[in-house]
Amino acid sequence: MINLASAYASLVIADEAPNFNGELKKIYDPDAPKYADTVSKDDVSGTEQSGTELKYIPMNAVHFPESGEQYGNVSCEKLGLNAPVYWGDTGAILRMGAGQSKYTFPPGFGRTIILSAHNISFFNPLKNAEVGDVIKFDTNYETYEYRIVKAEVAKAADLEIEFNDMLLTEKETLVMYTCYPFDAVVAVPDRFVVYCEKISGLDVKWR
């Protein structure tokens, strides 16, 4: 049992863990210019976007991620959090970073975002999370910031119901959760979850 736990722990801790799933790919480029940086006044002249500031990002400027694609990165310098974000939350993805539930939306869409990652690796820094901490979610099209408004321990079964209720909510909330306690290396019934409200970043006009 100890050997199995140790082996499991080494798989999820290793920063250089091999890509077990050849289908994982990276579209995220932290150095790529954001949408606002690529648009000139001439581009939007005469449109509803003309003026001193852009009001939104058009849908056709956004690549909606496909399953297995790393399309962003979440970080918080204060917490030491820095995790690539993949679309989907399979076991292979969770070995490489944070996985996003495909039943939710990317940042900027005004809807719930649900991320999960392993407690002893990518989301271990959440153990020091406090209300008020700011999380940065960087994508190719924009950088978004969210402030933690609630942090708690909850049963996974209860969260399933709560998350389901949040899916159609017309408010952009970033949810990040992981297994609890933070040093557990086997399946546990509890999760540590933080809820974050959006504080900055252009909305995507998708409807």
């Binding site: 909606f64 495909k102 039943y103 939306f105 809807r111 389901n164 899916l167």
Partner: peptide
């Protein structure tokens, strides 16, 4: 439909 299907329908129609 369950909420998970609705969000998926929304995603597909957006894409």
């Amino acid at each position: 439909p369950p909420a998970v299907y609705i969000t998926q329908a929304e995603q597909q129609l957006a894409k």
